[in-house]
Design a protein around this nucleic acid. Structure first.
Lengths: 154, 154
DNA sequence: GATAGTCGCAACGCTAATTGTTACGACAGC
DNA sequence: GCTGTCGTAACAATTAGCGTTGCGACTATC
């Protein structure tokens, strides 16, 4: 499907900011998050910009600037994140219009569109069952450590 | 997500073959199907080759060759087709390994892998609720016509 | 007011997947 | 043997995703 990593990186960033804030820090920089995700700060800023548009994070500019959560992690779900960073459909139609003189060519797109709409709604419902709080909990459970563990180890 | 049309085209091909066979024809050629889907016969042969590997269709070679269903449309679901033409995962992990010294970087991939596995299983279950018989019925319902209507109008 | 650190954003290159296309060998019915 | 179709390789074109650089905008601090 040529899957991309946008949902993964966005969830990573949110979990990182959330954990960092629990350690008493006000804002996290794109550079810190990028170091944790092993990517470029601009990639993080692009994704967080979309999350900001969805009301999930806020940003400050100037010296001491950075990113902070706009809501509690427990009130955000992967559905919110998915809809913020994946605007397009899951399945595409034909690149070129099928033969409208053919019964199958004529009806296939409306039929598949309706089927796909139901499937995508189910996907969204499933994503909405997982909060970012769940994600952070699962992440920290992989390598058990002290409560309030430092994201980057320092 | 950079969605592709593989599932759509594969469903189109199966519906076309199924309808064509109901009109008394034994096999359908990739050229006929390609004309209906408005694409190249090689594209159809590639997809049908994957469906053949999954046991959904059969092919004959030589003069008068072509494609036929290996099972009834009612016994195939979109899940079968999806698994035949979409081997990869729905969501990708980080392109580069995240910082393993960071608690989030260390735990994010196992955590997301498990979450994604559940989501993808839900997607498959939803796709398994739709048979290709359902698809063909929906397709023909878009433009009501006589039972046994000719796919390409001739 | 100057400085420094960070975001905002445009621009570009690289890589990979998808799709379309051509070409040609393999096969089977006539 | 001829012909029509599949089987498959090879290549081009297009697009999305991702990484990178560069620079202007903004603001806390000095």
């Amino acid at each position: 499907m040529s899957a991309n990593s946008r949902l993964t990186i966005a969830a990573h960033a949110l979990a990182w900011i959330g954990l960092y804030q629990r350690q008493g820090h006000e804002v996290a920089t794109s550079e810190q998050i990028a170091a944790s995700a092993n990517t470029n700060p601009v990639v993080i800023r692009r994704l967080l910009g979309e999350l900001r548009g969805a009301g999930l994070v806020e940003s400050r500019r100037g010296v001491g600037a950075g990113w902070s959560l706009a809501r509690e992690l427990g009130s955000m779900t992967l559905r919110d994140v998915y809809e913020a960073v994946e605007p397009g459909p899951l399945f595409a139609m034909h690149r070129a219009t099928p033969d409208q003189e053919c019964a199958v060519g004529f009806g296939i797109q409306p039929a598949m569109r309706e089927i796909y709409a139901g499937v995508e709604e189910t996907l969204r419902q499933e994503l909405s069952r997982v909060t970012l709080e769940d994600v952070l909990r699962d992440v920290l459970a992989v390598r058990p450590g002290p409560t309030g563990e430092v994201p980057s180890g320092g």
